[in-house]
Design a protein around this nucleic acid. Structure first.
Lengths: 197, 197
DNA sequence: CCTGTAAATTGATGTATGGTAAGAAATGAA
DNA sequence: TTCATTTCTTACCATACATCAATTTACAGG
């Protein structure tokens, strides 16, 4: 149980087994069914969710009621609304489960305690955050620089497994286009690919 | 000299003056003229730039040679290509000065040393990174959810001062549209505003 | 198996934004 | 000042993507 989580936090943290048990003693875990909410807009939330197994998403809803997928979180990812978790503001986003998902609730205290104990964990945690930031800039670059088709191709390349686990309309939403447009992009690609032969 | 930097790192870090002097002894500083490069694509870079005074930008260049502004960095902001600085990959972006800018070179070692010395700095640093991530998700949400006009309005609201310091075509680029489109958006807004009276 | 519902596709049409080109306005150097 | 260069604007047309509506396909529950 919680193998991913344990590996995640101990592989780089030089934490002994006893320390691990002690530190994680009061961590909460929960399993969510598909479609079940972890967080809704305007709710408060004071932790980050670590996905031990399964798949979550966060999304916003605009004035016209349309959903926009902000993030997917498969195994070993963190997902959270930082406006709420770090800044005590009511959440701007929804988070729900796409698949049945086992989640670990991680709060900032937990990170701080581990950081105090282990220099290598500190550095690892820093590394993770910088990596996250880097990743987000790449996505922003895609959104401001490239067409729907290129964004789609880059998505497949980066997340081949998500293609199989996520309905197409959610991927469209993540890419910032409508499901109809994604369907047409795929049709065009298929046609061109066929002509290649 | 370096007032912003000092305030930034000591206000929340409970660092004494002696400690500050010691820790920052080997930090490098440099002043860049407008249009001068701090980093070019494919170069390596092993630090983050802290803007003490002035204004920087990072941008990518696509296959057709068009620039896309990834980030603006006015006073008290960090700017970097993390792919290069944290992951030893050649840079994907360019960074240059918009105004004459005084920069402090901060490397990961510096952060690690301060983190080791001060718990409150650790937490502050963490806070900064989470805030950065939160900010990037907001921008992504804007890009996938809202029209050019709404993105522009939200930009003015968030960065009223940048409006005055940055040429319009760079703002267009940051918003993911062409300068011509931004010009039209502004015209429409002005016309509608006039009709209101 | 049938049946109802959500997802995906497709076509017709609309709209926002892009591209090009020209001129006006601003900026900067001589 | 004048000239040169960049930025901004405007007009006209092109295109990518959105919207709406109608099927088709996939799929879960009885």
């Amino acid at each position: 149980m919680l193998e991913n989580f344990r590996a995640y936090f101990t592989s780089k943290a030089e934490i002994t087994d006893e320390q691990y048990v002690k530190i994680t003693a009061d961590l909460k875990t929960k399993v969510y069914k598909p479609q079940q909410y972890l967080l809704r807009k305007d709710e408060m939330c004071n932790h980050t969710f670590f996905v031990e197994k399964g798949l979550l998403r966060s999304y916003s809803v605009d004035e016209t009621g349309k959903e926009h997928v902000i993030q997917f979180a498969p195994e070993n990812w963190f997902i959270s609304d930082r406006s709420s978790a770090c800044f005590n503001e009511p959440s701007e986003y929804f988070i729900d489960a796409i698949e049945e998902t086992r989640v670990v609730f991680v709060d900032q205290q937990f990170i701080q305690r581990l950081s105090a104990q282990s220099e290598s964990f500190r550095n690892y945690n820093d590394f993770i955050l910088h990596n996250h930031i880097r990743f987000l800039y790449k996505r922003i670059n895609m959104l401001i620089s490239h067409s729907a088709e290129i964004r789609y191709l880059s998505f497949i390349k980066l997340y081949p497994d998500l293609m199989l686990r996520v309905p197409q309309w959610m991927i469209a939403s993540y890419l910032g286009i409508t499901p109809e447009s994604l369907s047409r992009v795929r049709k065009d690609l298929a046609k061109r690919h066929a002509n290649m032969k």
